[in-house]
Design a protein around this nucleic acid. Structure first.
Length: 201
DNA sequence: CCCGTGATTTAT
DNA sequence: TAAATCACGGGG
């Protein structure tokens, strides 16, 4: 059996978690079948002071409630009227910080993922964006709040490599947050250098 | 590049 | 009421 990432892994600041998640495996169990991929792109959202975060200025709504819970749970939200995105809640309860999962290199269940994604496309495009990976892995609001440590439908496995070399990680501004003033430019997006499955170069 | 899509939150 | 949003796919 593959080892899971532990609760304490997630109970840290989101920048540390965003970096440490690169190379780890996201697993979705659907109808008894594993759909999985290696995480190659993430973004850290720093909570109350972060103008780009859903919990900026202490916002607490039905949508973002799970961000206020303990680390190691999922925060899945619906946006633009048609897309889901999957975050990993970090820190501890009442510390509303998270990491957005932005891209995977799919490794298990690719046939099912291709079926979930509508259009025909090369495999490098299957999970190369936050809404794409959610669609490929059938992640929606029903999984909001799911326990990523003890649950059995959505979880994270520690890969053999444990972590990737810091020199292989590129930090850059987050995508789609130009409205966020000084927070828009901060290097809180992380991805594996030159990886073919990232959402954009 | 622009456009349509359209749930949810926040501002007006 | 109305505008804005942690996107995507398809068409110029």
């Amino acid at each position: 059996m593959h080892a899971r990432l532990t609760r304490e892994f997630f109970r840290r600041d989101p920048v540390a978690v965003a970096r440490a998640l690169l190379g780890q495996r996201l697993v979705r169990v659907l109808h008894g079948q594993r759909l999985a991929g290696l995480i190659v792109e993430t973004e850290a959202y720093l909570g109350i002071p972060d103008k780009a975060a859903h919990t900026y200025n202490g916002r607490r709504t039905p949508r973002n409630a799970s961000m206020w819970g303990d680390g190691g749970h999922a925060y899945v939200y619906f946006t633009y009227g048609l897309h889901h995105c999957c975050n990993v809640v970090c820190g501890r309860a009442e510390e509303p910080v998270a990491v957005l999962l932005r891209a995977l290199e799919p490794t298990e269940g690719l046939d099912v993922m291709r079926r979930h994604r509508k259009a025909h496309m090369p495999d490098t495009n299957l999970c190369s964006g936050p809404a794409k990976l959610a669609q490929a892995l059938a992640i929606d609001r029903k999984l909001d709040g799911a326990d990523l440590v003890a649950g059995d439908t959505l979880f994270l496995e520690r890969t053999r490599s444990r972590c990737v070399a810091a020199s292989r990680i590129v930090a850059s501004p987050r995508i789609g947050v130009d409205y966020a003033g000084e927070w828009a430019a901060r290097p809180l997006r992380f991805h594996l250098r030159d990886h073919p499955h990232i959402s954009r170069a």
